[in-house]
Amino acid sequence: MATQAELVGDLKALRKGRGLFAGNVADRVGGTLRDLCGVTDEDGPGEIRYRVARRVTRLATGLPDDLRVAVLAAFGVLPAARHPLYQDRVAWVADRIHREPRTARRRIDEGIHQLAQLACTPQRAGTPPGAGWHTEETRVLAMLDRAAPEVLEHHRVVAGQDVTELELPVPPGSEVAYGGTLRSGVLTLPAPLGPGDTHEFALRTRLAVLPRQLVHVPGRQCDFLELRVRFDRDRLPRRVSRLPGGATAVQVDRAGEIRLTFADLTRGLTYGARWD
């Protein structure tokens, strides 16, 4: 199993130069970080950047805000901090937190160490034996700007024991886009999963009427959730509220879209957005 010290070393090596956007990124991502992010020898530079950025960003949601920003800026994940030199990204962090560059460097180091701690805890590293399976990532897109609105769901699950099928709370009218066969709320997998194996599948649901909300209620452990809604720009909602905590307003961007992310979800709690 990867040690925290090995992961810290890989992360500190990656932050140099252009960070995640170095031309030789395949050589810059160390073995421990590769294992953590699921990078394979067949992956090209674009796929490597995607996998590493996704994993680091998800782990960083568990950090305090100042450390999260410092770490993501250090690797060049944040577009606003995507400078060609590490020292320039340090300066960006210093300006953001209103501190000297040496303080920004300490924040980055602290953030990297805490990131490695999060990655190496048993809860993050894997699922306890006998837990069945859990959702590592769910991404939901509601496309409401078309004559026949629909919702696409992409799921990545991790097995904690031998698994051949998944029981799912499937909305009426759903069909499998890929990743198995669905019948009566049970997804039969293309091949059995063993402990630690991952599987991806997608569902497509056509909507009979325009909804007033997009919500997700996890019945199992869910590590990360992304919800996107694309509204008709000629019929934008007057107000969009984030759930839980309906008093939090969400801004619709110029494309008529919203994007919400959640990490380490609580089972049975409603996550998503409501609009009118």
Rank of each mutant, 00 (worst) to 15 (best):
L210W: 05
T270F: 01
G126Y: 01
E175D: 14
A202K: 03
L152T: 14
R146M: 11
G126T: 04
L265E: 05
Y178H: 15
V163T: 14
P195E: 07
V151H: 03
H155I: 09
P171N: 05
P128V: 15
P244S: 08
G173W: 03
L152M: 12
P172E: 12
V186A: 02
T270D: 00
V250D: 11
T198H: 11
L187E: 05
G180E: 10
R206T: 13
V157N: 03
A247S: 15
G196Y: 06
G245H: 13
G179P: 01
P211L: 04
L182G: 01
Q251A: 14
L168Y: 05
Q161N: 08
L168W: 04
L236M: 13
D197N: 08
S184E: 08
T138I: 14
S184I: 02
A255C: 10
T127M: 15
L227C: 09
V157T: 03
R183Y: 11
V151L: 06
E137Q: 14
T270K: 03
E153C: 09
A247Y: 14
T266G: 02
R228P: 00
S184L: 02
V163N: 08
V186H: 02
R259E: 14
P192C: 09
P190F: 02
P211Q: 06
T198G: 14
L225I: 04
L187W: 01
V163P: 04
L166K: 03
L141A: 04
L189E: 05
Q213H: 12
L182P: 01
R206A: 13
W133F: 10
L227P: 03
C222S: 12
L227D: 04
L207V: 02
T127A: 15
M143D: 08
E153H: 13
V250Y: 11
L193A: 11
V186C: 03
H199N: 10
V151R: 07
P195I: 02
L214T: 09
T248Q: 15
G268H: 09
S241K: 04
V215Y: 00
E226I: 15
G185K: 02
A177Y: 13
H134P: 07
V215M: 04
P128R: 15
L166F: 02
E167C: 08
L225A: 01
F201C: 10
V250L: 13
R230Q: 13
P149I: 04
R212M: 00
G256C: 08
L269V: 15
Q213R: 14
V140Y: 01
R183H: 14
L227A: 10
I258C: 04
L227Y: 06
A249E: 13
D145K: 01
T127I: 13
Q213L: 07
A208K: 09
D145H: 09
R204T: 13
Y178V: 11
H216N: 07
V140T: 07
E150P: 04
D232M: 12
G196S: 12
Y271N: 01
A191K: 14
V229I: 11
S174H: 12
H199C: 08
G132L: 06
P129D: 14
L189W: 01
A131S: 14
T248G: 12
T205Y: 11
M143N: 07
E226F: 11
T266E: 15
P169F: 00
L168V: 10
P172F: 01
D145T: 04
A142V: 03
E167P: 05
T181N: 06
P195Y: 05
R206S: 12
H216A: 04
V170P: 01
L152R: 13
V157E: 03
L210A: 10
